[in-house]
Design a protein around this nucleic acid. Sequence first.
DNA 1: TATTTCACG
DNA 2: ACGTACGTGAAATAA
Length: 897
Amino acid sequence: MSKKILLIDGNSLAFRAFYAMYQQLDRMVTPEGLHTNALVAFNNFLESIVLPMQPDMGLVAWDARSGRETFRGDLYADYKAGRDKAPAEFKEQFPYLREMVEAHGLHNYEQMGLEADDIIGTLSRVGQKAGDQVIIITGDQDLTQLVTDDVTVKLTKKGVTQVEVYTPDFIMEKFGITPEQIIDKKALTGDTSDNYPGVTKVGEKTALKLLKEYHDLDNLYAHVDEMKPSKMKENLINDKDVAYRARKLATIITDAKLEIGLSDIAYNGPKEKGLVELFEKLHFRQALNKLRSQSLLGDDLGEAADASEQKQGDFAKVSTLTEASLKKLVEEDQLAFHIDTTGENYHQADMIAFALGNDKVGYFASRDFTLFDHDDLRTIIESDRIQLRLFNAKAHWVLLHRLGLTLHGVDFDFLLVAYLLDTVGNDNVLSTLAGRFGRYLATDEEIYGKGAKFAVPEEAEVVEDHVGHKAQTVFDLRDQAFSDLDEHEQGHLYSDIELPLSFVLAKMEARGFKVNQDRLAKMGQEMDEKIASLKEEIFQMAGEEFNINSTKQLGTLLFDKMGLPVIKKTKTGYSTAVEVLEKLAPQAPIVEHILAYRQLAKLKSTYVDGLLAVVDQADQKVHTRFLQTLTQTGRLSSVDPNLQNIPMRTEEGRKIRHAFVPSKPDWLIFGADYSQIELRVLASITGDPAMEHAFVEDEDIHAETARKVFGLADDAPVDADQRRTAKAVNFGIVYGISDFGLSKNLNIARKDAKSFIETYFQEFPKIHQWMDAIKEKAHKDGFVETIEHRRRYLPDINAKNFNTRSFAERTAMNSPIQGSAADIIKIAMIKVDRAIQEKGLQARMLVQVHDELVFECPTEELDQLRETVTTVMDQAVKLAIPLKVESHAGPTWYEAK
DNA sequence: TATTTCACG
DNA sequence: ACGTACGTGAAATAA
């Protein structure tokens, strides 16, 4: 029988692992002083990529010493020279990497005179001859030359947990060549990372063109004389030796004499004892917890248990759903349910398959969505009697709505719970989040592929197993997740805020916001005319044509050719951001034009073209998705399109809002927003008497702050500049003040900013105390909380690096404020939604923009809606400070603000 | 894919 | 001495 052989390029992956977590280098140090970033990433890689693969053989190949001791070093003295020497922080992790490989049940191998590539090349051919299936995992594209029908190369992209799968077809599609030609491509281009050259001036594009025409290097040189004269032809002729040397360097050995064979590298799964020992030594707390929870899940197999057996035990057999099985399922009172779709945008994605079941009757799946016409299935979805467990209730509500059903009886939304437990590292993917609880599930990418490669597998069984296992995972994780939630005192936040909110949001999304496309298109035309004339003027003034959208070309013009002073740099060159251009404007008239061009280009591309592209032609509406489990603070975010950043601050941009209109004639748009909600939250949670007083008396808070920091009398007039400064200070306080930030914002000296802050803290002492206290709490507990126990962990709070740590401290101050404000408007949304239903209003909530709610309603309902919404928002929560709501209405969103 | 810029709160 | 204001998403360019 054909076996699965896994060959891993240890060096390239370890390197990738080190740099994948390079930013966390500082944070990942054991008490003994050992850095562990590469080890953590490598462990993730082994768990997420290797473990689910369950190969029959597994080997990790390492380079023996340096490249110079291999034949390639003899062939070309500079081979791999100039490579950054591995930092000490990396080298110290090497011995443990090998131990980790062993503990995971894989074999290490290296051999003098060979590189890891050659070991892999040789073994892949051995496996191929034996009729086995070979999978190579590496970060080095060179290895793709080994690809055949039986040999697949998985190349890590971005970090170590995402891979691109190279098959002969894929290579043909991507480069238009065969795997064998990869070597000749390298021969022509050389390799900068291994520091050997190819033919002068030949890069990837040229090389591929040449190979398409001449197929290989030998044939190319056989016909080089027939090429028509060109610089390239000369280069090819001159560099012939270089090319052939490069080809030798790039060719991986496939017939090396190895001291091992396939029989020596059998894989029998991880060794629990070895893993525990290693993880304890490295202080991997999470990994240890994961191991322990797995041991509990496994059938008490004890120390002899290996992961493969446990894995099998984890998942039930998934059966194809039938009417008979539905009959049994509908009698249950607890069921997990899951639908897989072809894309993230559940408003339009196709539904692939669905599954349901529980631990008693088992798990069932189907690709036949006509089953949703069946009464039993409708009952399961729509009845309150059956408590459902899902991953992402909001998405499922919308999908089921598309099928003509209304989701009811949701008890457990694993996505919401996982997000509330810990916002950090949440990618909204079931397999990842399940991993936190020690449950390992195939990823969607493994089943469906991704990008252009996305395809639903032909075999029904593969798909049904996948969705069935998802349902099972969600079913199994409920109790553990809920008990964690209780420990965090987050039961109320989940049951009374986030879960009910998800259905309010689902309805808002499904409803959509009507867009006047003609109006938008007309605005676009006018903008295009202005853009064209601005462009012409700019070219005239510059004396040349260039791409104004290119910061690089613009920088060259302004700073190199025109010699304007460089105010700020980015990591790649000159900054041309607004703040910089505004400073340059008095010196060069062209800059004003560029600013105007930029503004218009932005409006046109993002808000005219961008918006028109996502209007659903069936109903002339945009259907955003509010991401409820993304932000670190508890706010929502909005995508496809983002309705939370429609222009407002400039009149030209604000006109875009004219295109957002009610969905019915004689209806209005109505907007209600909280005034100063974050400062009110701050006053409330710090209990500062001065600030409290200002809000209770409904004073102008920025003017009041100005009187305090400028030492004016209680009723003294405040000039515009003083108010502006005070406003900036208030903003700074909410953001977690720093003198540097304030000085930059106000364009004043840092020491002046510092003295503003000192005065502020003297005048508002309770705020000062709270800021100190919250930072201390963060240092002690590692997290901060909002008024509703929303939690944000701050992994950097004890970092050695000043900047990293300071960032975490500002976050500790800002998150409870921003997050509590988010809590409040979420509560208000649920209550408003209920009030509208109870009063039988036709009005509909459409959008939330952090401190603002937007509705549409019949004209005659406006007064009642205004009364209802403002009262409910006012009274959403009980604070020591009154909340204040302002509202506006009109025929479009433009007037409703 | 990463970086820069800019739209919002 | 260090070099950040907090939280987002989309588009364009460069690589």
